[in-house]
Design a protein around this nucleic acid. Structure first.
Lengths: 255, 255
DNA sequence: CTTTGTGAACTTGTTCACAGCT
DNA sequence: AGCTGTGAACAAGTTCACAAAG
C-alpha cells in the first residue's frame, strides 16, 4: 500500500528540494523563450518576472544546482538552459506510452510540446479493439493486449494514464509490472503503487473545487464587509494573484 | 503584474491552510464512494487509506473544519460529505466557461465529473468561426466575440482556458475584464492577472519533466550502487510512492 | 478500549538582507 | 556599482504522541 509506509518524502533527490524541482521546468520554459529571441544573458529579476516567481526564490533555487551566474551580470541563457535540461534529465530521450485514447488521450497525443522536450510518444494504447490500428496524431493505436510487450520492447519508463477511473488501477498495475516506474495519472482515482514508483496526478475536478473554495470565500468576504455581524472577520484584501498555489506545480497542454 | 507585488500567500482563507483545502476534494471523493456503498461511518485510518494520505494529517485537516467526528467511533459519512461540500462551496452551482475547443477543450467539455459536483458548463467558446454552432458534448460552440456577453449574462466567475499558448493571455484578460475571478489554465504560459483573481494551472509538460527528473535520479542511483563494477544492491530504498508531490494537488478527468 | 482532536516537535519551504565577486 | 549566492530569520506544513471523549 502506498500510504501505510513510514515513507521518505520523495523529496530532496540529490539535495535539490522538491519545490525547486517543480519550478525548474518553469524557468526552463522562460529561458527557452529568451533563447529563441537570442537574448544572451538575463538577471534573476528579469527571469523571475518571466517565470512568475520572485527573484530571491529563483536565486535560491539556482544555488542548489551550483553557481551558474556571474555577479554583476546575470545568467548566461544558453548555459542555464543546458544546465537545467541536464538536471531534469531532458538531454536524454524518454519514450512515453499513453494508455486510454479517448478525448483526453487524443488531446495528449496531439500535444506538440511533448516531442519538443525530451519526450517521445512511443505508443498509444487502448482497450477498445475497434480503435486498434486507427492512427491518432499519426500514431496507430495498439490494443492493450500488447501493453507489456510495448513497454519492454521500447524500454518505456514513463506511462500516462488517461483511461476512465475504473480502468486506471489495473492499467497502472500492468504498467508497473512491465517495468514502468513513473506514472502521470489523469484518471480521478488514487493509485496504489509499490515503493520506488512515482505517481503524479492531474485532476480537473480537484482544481475546480479548489477554485470554488476561494471563489466562495471572496463572495463571503464581500458580504461580511457589507452586511451585519455574521462570522468571518475583517475583509483583508490582497489575496491571490500568483500562479497556482505556491507549493507545487502541475503540467500543461494547449488545444 | 502578478509577480512584482509583495503578494500575500493566497493561503489561509478562513483559517484553513491551503494545503488542507487542496486535500478536501480528495477526502470528498473517497467519502462519496463510501456513501454510494452506504457505509455509515468511517475512521480516520480507513478514510485516510482511501484518500492516500496518513491519518494524522487527515485528522488535523478535519480539525480546521470543526469537530465532526465521534471519539471511539469515527466520522459519519453523510454528515462529512455535507460539511466538506459546504466548505468547498459545492452546495451552490458554479457556471463555467471553457475557452478553446480543440482536442483538449472537447475532452474537458465531455468530462462527466464536471456536472456531478456543483459545476455546470455554461458555454463553450472558440475563436474559429467554423466551430460556431457546432455542438460539442451537446453544447453548441459560440464564437469568442460573444465572450463578454456570455460571461456577464450567465454570471460566470470561473473560466477554463484550453487555448494555444499564444491566445491564453488575451483570453485571460478578456475573461477577467468581463468579471471572471478564477481561472484554470491549461495553456503552457504564465498568466498575469490583477489582484483578487485566482489562477491555477495544469501543465502536462511540467509534470513530465518532474517525473523525468526523478526517473533520472533512480537510474543514477542504480549506477552509483553498482559503482564501476558489478551492479548489485540498491542504495537507500523507500523513495516515492505517494500520490503526487506532497504539497499541492491538481485536477482530473477520464477519457 | 477505541478513536478523535490537538499542542508541541520537527521538517520543508520562503523571504530577508547583505557579504562577496565581477 | 550591480547582481549573485547564501546564512539566518521566518512561515507553512507534517508528524508525533497523548489527553480527552465516547
Amino acid at each position: 500500500m502506498a500510504t501505510g509506509r513510514t515513507h521518505r518524502p520523495a523529496s530532496r533527490s540529490r539535495g535539490i528540494p522538491e519545490a525547486t524541482v517543480a519550478r525548474l521546468p518553469l524557468y526552463l520554459r522562460a529561458l527557452t523563450g529568451l533563447s529563441e529571441r537570442s537574448v544572451p544573458t538575463v538577471s534573476s529579476e528579469e527571469l523571475a518576472a518571466a517565470a512568475g516567481v520572485n527573484s530571491a526564490k529563483l536565486r535560491k533555487d539556482f544555488s542548489y544546482l551550483g553557481s551558474y551566474g556571474t555577479r554583476g551580470v546575470g545568467y548566461d541563457v544558453e548555459y542555464l538552459v543546458y544546465q537545467i535540461s541536464r538536471e531534469l534529465g531532458l538531454t536524454q530521450d524518454w519514450p512515453v506510452v499513453i494508455v486510454g485514447i479517448g478525448n483526453l488521450g487524443a488531446a495528449l497525443a496531439n500535444y506538440g510540446g511533448f516531442a519538443s522536450r525530451g519526450f517521445r510518444v512511443a505508443a498509444l494504447i487502448d482497450a477498445d479493439p475497434a480503435m486498434a490500428g486507427k492512427p491518432v496524431a499519426g500514431i496507430p493505436v495498439q490494443h492493450s493486449d500488447e501493453l507489456e510487450k510495448i513497454v519492454s520492447d521500447n524500454g518505456v519508463s514513463i506511462g500516462v494514464i488517461a483511461t476512465p477511473a475504473g480502468a486506471a488501477q489495473p492499467v497502472c498495475d500492468r504498467l508497473v509490472a512491465a517495468g514502468v516506474t513513473s506514472i502521470l495519472n489523469f484518471a480521478p482515482t488514487v493509485l496504489t503503487v509499490p515503493d520506488g514508483v512515482d505517481v503524479r496526478k492531474v485532476d480537473l475536478s480537484i482544481e475546480l473545487q479548489i477554485l470554488a473554495f476561494h471563489e466562495q470565500r471572496k463572495a463571503g468576504e464581500e458580504a461580511a464587509a457589507a452586511a451585519d455581524g455574521a462570522h468571518a472577520a475583517a475583509a483583508h484584501r490582497g489575496d491571490s494573484a500568483e500562479q497556482g498555489p505556491d507549493g507545487d506545480v502541475p503540467a500543461v497542454m494547449p488545444a
